[in-house]
Design a protein around this nucleic acid. Structure first.
Length: 918
RNA sequence: GCGGAUGUGGCGUAAUUGGUAGCCGCGCUAGACUUAGGAUCUAGUGUCUUGCGACGUGUGGGUUCGAGUCCCGUCAUCCGCACCA
């Protein structure tokens, strides 16, 4: 009987759907296991063959865990808010919801064809009010909480108000940029408006004037992770720095916990390292420098307090608020000229062109260690966003300061014995200090500690840990996102009441900014509260909806909570999360932050959302080329192309097989090629190839639907896994797919002889059992280690060997079917059914390896010499002592080891050689 | 510059974790069955050599009886961060 995969797959997909086979309940005696895929943004292009890679891997693991008796939560949904749908709406006027839902339908049908075991009853879409109600709810919680550094958690802002009323803010240790101290009396004397302004500095979701990444082309601000090399990640448009009043999330308050949390989760080292870099912890000191001739100070952050004796000038970032204070009248014109020039450069230009520039402010600062007067400069090599936006410059030991000093001819004082700073700075933290007063003679590391101690003791500054991680800019001037549950009264923001959620996204006529430059929501009619107060016009960014979606799957229809306590206590957090590395510094930071915040408030029971994370590699495209003889309509095969002058043309990979062009299909592919002629080699047209990104323009997009149509979903699933290790990026190459398809046919054929189903109930032989149990052992090990490519190989070997033995015994084939079910569920289901079962294969139990069938007929003998295992001899299990000794003498390795001499004695204990005496 | 990862046949990869390098698959070669083959089956397929045999895991050293695997250096590719003080 032929392996009719089309019929089998349709039949079982229908059965699974109709019987809700993969529906999961929130209560079970079984242990839970939560397997999650990063939900996709449904783009208009649909899924290509690379997208399901991670989904297949997680599906295999889900099915495996289920077969092992776990209650497995394996949901799927859509990250439905996003720029492309909105850009499309601007171009076509079509409502982004329409496009998004159409795309979702397409995604769903593509996914369904692959036979995933998602519990679709739990589907979430971030753009539906039922869902974003909880995104808005979380935002309100963030608005109503502040971060207490002593408690090291988020606490209600009401608590803070009580403290202010009782004792002011002097003892409050909270995450804030607010540095004014007030007493209880001062607080109580403030107007409500003043109080709200103060509190805004403490809220975890707060509105502030901040330097933002403004993308004029997209008409919106972007978060740091949405900008790369001064260009927007989406669209690649230039981004500039600009001060705007924006909603922000105080992610930085969680920097240390986000860092510490990495220790207890099972992610790859490289991903953890990426997050550590992004968080960017650095230990140092904050130091105050007095501005000469005034009582004013400014503060710098440094990790090299030990080099303070070598500070020969100071530098401020152009955007620093100190700039105005230190600029003297004499220098004003020049400073303004410089600031203007800096302002006009985009971030991108600033990065591209790093030649030294700067201007003297006219003021001097006083070095707190030496009392020397040192000039204060302004330069764009100092970033406003990091530390305090001001630095102490140590040209001898910092390459950037060095370049600046050389350019402006400023003094360079070496501080480490024997270092040579005539041509470059000495940046290494090694050596013995000199020219450094009380630090002389110390090693650099000792000096850093001593200098920090001195700074604290003398009140010059304090020891400080700085993080690169910035607060997340949380507003976007776009339409297609979650509305903020915020309204304005006298220009001041107020939160809506939780009972008013969800605040639904209104319909608008135009998706462009308003004429007055307001975001698109400015077009909405009646965009007010009941009382007539205007609502916030910004919407939330893409990461808002994806930050807690994993919690919502636990309890997707709950109208009273994001997730009920019971559901959360049962499912806890994600055991296995699979997705791409591109979210390393975006989603994976934000959702950890979001989760920790909800954890602080006691709504959820786990501090980290994703216990284990696997990054599937990217699937690149494998493009094919034809070679057109220049100026003709002749196409020459790859091997002969050097004899002509040719032009390389991308050809649709779907009309090429094994790099051989289907010439007829080529003629029909495009009108231009209708009369194409071919110069063949060996009667074939051989195409060239290259690995490129999978994209329409390269004609190398392979659609999973086509593979399913031609080979079946099971073949697609197996082949994607067979391609190589899951974490590795690799090109898609349909060429090898016949191999796994053949394997499935062979596997199918094991149950038939001709068209007749032939299953024997005979006892399996020892050899058959050994093959089976070896395979069980190998597959179990491989699945546990996510080594699916070797699993597929193991299946192939197993089926080859059993076919060779013509094994058609139920006792062998049935466990094998269950073993293979996670990988190729449709064929397994059908075969399981043919064996007479009326339950589905996913209710079976995963086979367990019985070691007794694996007993080797050889035994390994480790050979020790002088107490150290030297090598291993492999002998037949029933070898006698004499056999062993004889083998030892005859063994080439042993002979080499013994260096030609013969052993006086071979000591054998319990049939095991433990020592050889020469 | 800092950090992470990877280098094995024509190609994708594997190697019981220090023990016969190249499993499995693609491709290729030959053969069988076929009107036919882009179907199926069988055998072969790292390189050099007629052969015996020698060489062989980017590269150079080292440790070891034994190294793809461990150590030191070096080259190449990919990724992350980057005027971060």
């Amino acid at each position: 009987m032929d392996y009719n995969f089309r019929e089998i797959e349709q039949k079982w997909q229908k059965h699974w759907k109709e019987n809700a086979v993969y529906k999961v309940l929130n209560n079970s005696n079984k242990p839970k296991y939560y397997v999650l895929d990063m939900f996709p943004y449904p783009s208009g292009a649909g899924l290509h063959v690379g997208h399901p890679l991670g989904y297949i891997a997680s599906d295999i693991y889900s099915r495996y865990k289920r077969l092992q008796g776990f209650n497995v939560l394996h949901p799927m949904g859509y990250d439905a808010y996003g720029l492309p749908a909105e850009q499309y709406a601007i171009q076509t006027g079509q409502h982004p919801e329409k496009t998004t839902f159409d795309n979702i339908a397409r995604y769903r049908s593509q996914m369904d064809k692959i036979g995933f075991c998602y519990d679709w009853s739990r589907e979430v879409r971030t753009c539906t009010p039922d869902y974003y109600k909880w995104t808005q709810w979380a935002f309100l919680q963030m608005f109503k909480h502040y971060y207490d550094k002593d408690a090291d958690k988020a606490l209600p802002i009401d608590n803070l108000i009580k403290i202010f009323e009782k004792e002011g803010n002097a003892k409050v240790n909270a995450a804030t940029n607010f540095d004014t101290t007030f007493t209880a009396a001062e607080w109580n004397a403030m107007t409500d408006k003043e109080k709200r302004a103060v509190l805004m500095n403490y809220r975890i979701a707060y509105k502030a004037d901040t330097m933002v990444n403004w993308c004029p082309k997209l008409g919106t601000v972007l978060a740091n992770d949405e900008v790369s090399d001064g260009l927007s990640v989406r669209g690649g448009f230039p981004v500039e720095q600009k001060v705007m009043s924006q909603w922000c999330l105080r992610v930085s308050a969680y920097a240390q916990r986000l860092l510490d949390g990495l220790e207890k989760i099972d992610w790859t080292d490289s991903l953890k390292e990426t997050q550590r870099n992004w968080i960017g912890r650095s230990e140092g000191a904050e130091m105050r420098f007095r501005i000469d001739g005034t009582d004013d100070y400014f503060t710098v952050f440094t990790t090299r307090a030990d080099t303070t004796f070598g500070v020969t000038f100071m530098v401020l970032a152009p955007e620093s608020e100190y700039v105005a204070k230190v600029t003297t009248d004499k220098q004003r014109q020049e400073v303004e000229k410089y600031l203007d020039a800096v302002k006009r450069r985009t971030e991108r230009e600033r990065i591209a062109d790093r030649k030294v520039s700067g201007v003297f402010s006219g003021s001097y600062a006083v070095n707190p260690f030496t009392g020397d007067k040192i000039p204060v400069y302004i330069s764009d090599y100092v970033l406003a966003g990091y530390g305090t936006g001001a630095i102490m410059a140590v040209p001898a030991h910092d390459s950037r300061d060095y370049a600046f000093a050389k350019h402006f001819n400023l003094p360079i004082i070496p501080l480490i014995e024997g270092c040579d700073v005539t041509n470059e700075s000495y940046d290494a933290k090694e050596g013995v200090m000199c020219n450094s007063g009380f630090l002389n003679g110390l090693q650099v590391k000792e000096a850093i500690a001593a200098a920090k101690k001195y700074i604290s003791e003398k009140g010059i500054g304090k020891v400080k840990v700085n993080y690169r991680l910035r607060d997340a800019i949380f507003s976007r001037q776009r339409y297609w996102g979650e509305p903020f549950p915020i309204y304005y009264k006298d220009g001041e923001p107020f939160p809506l009441d939780e009972s008013e959620l969800p605040l639904k996204l209104p319909e608008i006529d135009s998706y462009l900014p308003t004429e007055t430059g307001e975001p698109p929501l400015g077009h909405a009619k009646n965009w007010n509260t009941k009382e007539g107060y205007p609502l916030e016009l910004n919407t939330m960014p893409g990461f808002a909806g994806s930050s807690a979606y994993y919690l919502r799957y636990m309890d997707p229809t709950n109208n009273n909570a994001l997730v009920s306590k019971d559901a959360n206590n049962y499912w806890r957090n994600v055991d296995l999360y699979i997705g791409g590395t591109e979210h390393a510094t975006g989603h994976l930071i934000y959702s950890r932050f979001w989760n920790k915040f909800l954890f602080d408030l006691g709504y959820i029971c786990e501090d980290e959302p994703f216990k284990k994370l696997i990054n599937q590699g990217m699937i690149q495209g494998r493009s094919n080329f034809v070679y057109r003889v220049v100026g003709t309509n002749k196409f020459v095969s790859l091997g002969l192309k050097d004899q002509y002058q040719t032009q390389e043309i991308h050809v649709n990979v779907n009309i090429v097989k094994n790099d051989i062009l289907d010439t007829e299909a080529f003629k029909n592919w495009m009108p231009d090629f209708k009369n194409a002629e071919f110069i063949l080699e060996d009667g074939k047209y051989v195409c060239g190839w290259a690995i490129e990104k999978m994209s329409k323009s390269m004609f190398n997009v392979v659609n999973p639907d086509d593979i399913v149509e031609n080979y079946g979903a099971d073949t697609l699933r197996l082949y994607e896994m067979f391609l190589g290790p899951i974490e590795q990026s690799k090109p898609w190459d349909t060429n090898g797919i016949d191999g796994v398809h053949r394997f499935l046919k062979k596997f199918w054929g094991m149950m038939f002889s001709g068209d007749e189903l032939t299953i024997s109930d005979a006892e399996p032989t020892a050899e058959e059992l050994k093959i089976l149990h070896q395979t069980i052992k190998k597959i179990t090990f491989d699945i546990e280690h996510f080594s699916y490519n070797t699993s597929v190989s193991a299946f192939m070997i197993c089926v080859n060997e059993l076919s060779r033995l013509k094994c058609n015994k139920r006792a062998v084939i049935e466990p094998l079917i269950i073993l293979i079910a996670p990988f190729a569920p449709h064929i397994a289901e059908e075969m399981y059914h043919l064996l007479g079962h009326d339950t589905t294969v996913c209710d079976a139990s995963f086979p367990i390896c019985n070691e007794k069938y694996l007993v080797e007929n050889t035994v390994k003998y480790p050979i020790s010499f002088n107490g150290k295992t030297r090598f291993t001899l492999e002998l037949s299990a029933d070898a006698s002592k004499e056999d062993i000794e004889k083998t030892v003498l005859a063994n080439e390795q042993t002979a080499k080891f013994l260096n030609g001499g013969s052993p006086k004695k071979v000591i054998v204990v319990l049939g095991r050689i433990v020592n050889i005496v020469i």
